[in-house]
Amino acid sequence: MRKPLTKAMLLPMPENAAREIFLVNHLTFAAWQRGAGSAYLFNELIRVIYLAYYVQDAGFGDADLIIYARAEAAMECVLQRAERSRAWTLDAHDIPLFEAVLRQSDRRLANAPRHVHLGARPARLFRVQRAILSPARGGHRPLSRPCGCLPRQETNFYRTYQ
């Protein structure tokens, strides 16, 4: 039987903890924008994407789910590029997509109950990151198909989430 949630777990994350996470997420994204990506920053950015997705999946969020699938596909392309050329870079046309994911992440971090964030983190994110880093183990991406399988649309759906 599951233990009842405490009052602290039903409230949003404490403001100082949320600010620290905001800062880490925004600094991670800023490094990617400057072309300073790395394996470590890859893990941090993929964590932002999946945490935002899992929090929304728990009922806290209203973004079009395609932004998460496209962000995941873009990260798959980053990983493939890094394996080929050791260049950890985002495509410039994907930057608005990650900005939309980051805005969603910020909103959910400030508003969703703490238990939702904590429930999404440990086991789920570890399994996803292990699958991403070890495709030979039969890992798969939970949101999208391999790089290039999601067609790009001419419409700019990113503006919807600004």
Rank of each mutant, 00 (worst) to 15 (best):
M1W: 08
R2Q: 14
R2L: 15
K3M: 14
T6M: 13
T6W: 04
K7Y: 08
M9S: 13
L10V: 09
L11G: 01
P14G: 12
A17K: 11
A17M: 15
A18S: 13
F22H: 15
L27K: 13
T28W: 01
F29M: 15
G37W: 02
Y40I: 10
L41M: 03
F42A: 07
E44L: 15
L45I: 14
I46K: 04
V48C: 09
V48L: 08
V48T: 15
I49C: 09
Y50V: 02
A58M: 11
G59M: 10
G61T: 09
D62M: 12
D64F: 06
I66H: 05
I67F: 04
Y68K: 03
A71I: 07
E72S: 15
E72N: 10
A74C: 05
M75T: 03
V78N: 08
Q80D: 13
Q80E: 14
Q80T: 10
R81I: 06
R84F: 01
S85E: 12
R86D: 12
W88F: 14
T89G: 04
D91S: 12
A92S: 13
A92W: 03
I95V: 15
L97C: 07
F98I: 11
F98W: 07
V101K: 02
V101G: 03
R103W: 10
R103S: 11
S105H: 15
R108V: 07
L109P: 01
N111Y: 01
A112I: 05
L118V: 14
G119E: 02
A120G: 15
A123F: 09
R127M: 09
V128E: 01
Q129T: 06
I132C: 00
R137L: 15
G138N: 01
G138S: 01
G138R: 05
G138L: 04
G139S: 04
H140K: 10
R141M: 08
L143V: 04
S144P: 00
C147L: 03
R152S: 07
Q153F: 01
N156W: 01
F157L: 10
Y158H: 08
T160A: 07
T160K: 10
Y161E: 00
Q162L: 12
